[in-house]
Structures are given as C-alpha cells and as structure tokens.
Design a protein around this nucleic acid. Structure first.
Length: 364
DNA sequence: AAGACGGTCAACCGCCCTAAA
DNA sequence: GTTTAGGGCGGTTGACCGTCT
C-alpha cells in the first residue's frame, strides 16, 4: 500500500505556470510567508496547484536573487570539483553558488558541463592515438579511457584517504559487502597496486598501519558509539602528530580549493609528494581547469558505453559517499541553496547531508 | 517548406527523512 | 514505539525551440 498523495491529483493543475499564478504565489509569500505548510498554501491563495509544486516554483524561480543561465568559469570549476568530490548532491553544490538552484545546476551539468568534460576527454584520446605510432597501438581509446577512469578512481580514493582518515577506504571494518562490480574493481586495483603503484599503496588500506593509530581511528566503531557528525569535531578528533598525514582546516569558503581547503602540515607534505598523490591530483586539477577554460572547445560526441563507463566510475567513487571536509561556516553560503531561503536550517542540512554517510558506515 | 533530430530547462514523480501526533 | 504528513532531494519527463536534412 502506497502512501496517500499530498493533494487531490485530479483537482490540481499541472504544467507550466501562468504569470497570474506566479504573481499570486509571489505576492502571498512575500506578504505572509509560507506559514510553514506548503501543502495548505495553494488553498489559502486559491491556486489549483499541488503544494509541492508551489514550493518548487518559489524555490527555483520566484524567490529573490535567483540567477538563471550565464554560468561563469568559476562556477563551472566549482560544480566540477564538487561533483567529483561528492557526486550528484545538487543541493549541497547549490549551497556554494549564491543565487543558483539545485535544479539549475543539475540541468546545467547534465546538458552541458558533463558533455564538455567528456567530449574533451575523447578528443584528447584521439590526439594521443594519432601521435603514438609505436607498434603497440593503444588498441582503442576505450582502453585509454578505461585507464583514465581507473586513474580518476584512484585519485579520488587517494584524496579520500588523505583528507579523511575516517573514510571507508581507510577503515576496512566499515566496509559494506561490495557489489560484484565493486569487488572486481577492488581486485583489479589491488593487482595494480602490487607494490608498484604508489597511488594505490596509499589509497588502499594498508595492513601495516601502526596499531595505535589504527585503534584510534577505529575506536568509534569498536565502542559501538555513534560518530559525532559535527565536522569540526571530526577534524579535532583527528590525531595531528602521529597519523602520518594530517590536515588543518583552512577556513576557505572556496570549493575550488577543496582539495585544497585542507592545508597539509609540513610533515605530511613530504610523504604525500613521495606518494605522487598530490602531483597526480594537481594534474587532474590542471586538466579540469584546462578543459573548463577552453569554453569554445567544440563538443565531440562519444560512444555511449564510454560515457556510461565514466559515469559509472563516478558513481562507484561516490558510492562510499564519504566526502571532503571543506565546509566553512561562512554565512555567505547560507543564502544560496534551494533550501537556504530559510537560512536558519542550512548549516544543519549541510552537516547532516555531508556526514550522515559516516553514520551509515558505523551502523552497518 | 517541412519533418526529423537534438538540446535545454521547467516541472513532475517518487522515495527518503524527520518531526509531530 | 508506531503512524502519519510535510519537506527535501535526485532522477526523469516532456514541451519547446533551434538546427539539420
């Protein structure tokens, strides 16, 4: 038995909003607010619309300071970086872009940004193939893309392990049973690792972690205690001297520096650079910037399975859903998202959204 | 000129989470 | 502790429009 609909579906208007409806909704909300009940709102105004539809119309179109279209390069960068970091959490991404709505960003990503990035990738693969003539032809750019996707997965995992010792990657006890694909992926990554891949050496959990350090990281689960969802507490709880790699929050509000918004301590820098992780991360960042800065670059269509593969890797990467801790307390961000028009709720939502996955991990 | 095709984006759907009853 | 209803969110749909053939 499904749940009851929120309104009488047979008696509500659907489809595009008329200027009259817009005016009525806007005037009412500006004068009276929502009254904390969207479902009851259309009746009060006399609109034959579902309450959810009113909410959406207000949040995505009618509320003040909404920007449509004309995404800047900086916004492109932010969206891409965040998508790589946290996946399709559009509301969180929107929270970092004042005046943008999650719906807008989602549409923009799906219709333009994704194609721009992936189109450029294929072109670069073409070029690589054209210029390599060493007999061992990279039999297809399918392979090239595969290794690239794998590399991005590795980079992502590296990033995760560096930035958050609590991540799934660093905590086998938290690992859920893997999907067969994930099992396969992990096996191939580990075979790549075989002592020769510095990225994976640090990205995959090491059996040589010092006991004290391991205990410290694992303690929340061993104790059966729920991890504190407060990112600040999380940061504070990370051992700073003996963890091998440690970070301090920089307070930057620019997700461009998300990598980035965490400043490595001096002792960690050497280890990280030895592991090549940051160098490759930098290369990825440069490539991303390069792609985004070539805004006139034409889109080269590509075969669906390539697109699917790349997307799937992103999905798999985001499957763990543990994310970067770069959120700042800057109140600017509060005015941006579709949920932030009620600014009092935003920080809680952000924190909640970001860290509920840790909760999930510990409850497995 | 007209139909096919593809891109864009507003809007809807359905699921999940949470607070209140 | 359970149920219910509203809010929030990501995924998907479909109308519209411009371009191509």
């Amino acid at each position: 038995m499904g749940r009851a609909p929120c309104c009488d579906k047979t008696n509500v208007k659907k489809g595009p909003w008329s200027p009259e409806e817009d005016a009525a909704l806007k005037a009412y909300i500006e004068k009276n607010g929502t009254g904390g009940n969207w479902i009851a709102l259309p009746q009060k105004i006399g609109l034959k619309r579902c309450g959810k539809s009113c909410r959406l119309r207000w949040l995505n179109y009618l509320r003040p300071n909404i920007k449509h279209g004309g995404f800047t390069e900086e916004e492109d960068n932010i969206i891409c970086n965040l998508y790589i970091s946290i996946g399709s959490r559009w509301s969180i991404i929107a929270a970092q872009l004042p005046g943008r709505t999650d719906n807008d960003i989602k549409n923009y990503w799906n219709t333009r940004l994704k194609k721009k990035l992936l189109g450029r990738r294929k072109q670069s693969n073409f070029n690589a193939k054209d210029t390599t003539n060493n007999g061992i032809e990279e039999n297809s750019y399918s392979n090239a893309l595969s290794s690239s996707a794998l590399e991005r997965l590795q980079l992502h995992m590296q990033l995760q392990s560096l930035q958050n010792p609590f991540s799934f990657y660093n905590n086998p006890a938290m690992w859920p049973k893997l999907h067969p694909f994930q099992e396969k992926m992990m096996q191939s990554l580990q075979s790549l690792n075989d002592g020769s891949n510095p990225v994976m050496q640090s990205a995959l959990p090491s059996p040589h972690v010092e006991q004290g350090q391991k205990d410290e990281f694992y303690k929340p689960q061993q104790d059966g205690a729920k991890i504190n969802n407060n990112p600040q507490v999380l940061l504070e709880n990370i051992p700073l001297s003996n963890s091998g790699v440690s970070f301090v929050a920089s307070g930057s509000n620019n997700p461009m520096h998300s990598s980035l918004a965490l400043a490595p301590r001096a002792e960690a820098v050497e280890q990280i650079t030895n592991n090549v992780g940051l160098q490759q991360l930098g290369a990825l960042q440069n490539e991303l910037d390069d792609i985004l800065n070539n805004r006139t670059m034409g889109y080269v269509p590509q075969e669906d399975h390539h697109m699917a593969e790349f997307e799937y890797c992103f999905r798999e990467m985001n499957g763990s859903k543990d994310s970067l801790i770069w959120w700042s307390n800057d109140s600017d961000a509060k005015s941006a998202s579709s949920n932030s028009w009620d600014s009092s709720t935003t920080p809680a939502l952000l924190t909640q959204g970001m860290f509920q996955d840790y909760e999930l991990g510990y409850s497995l």
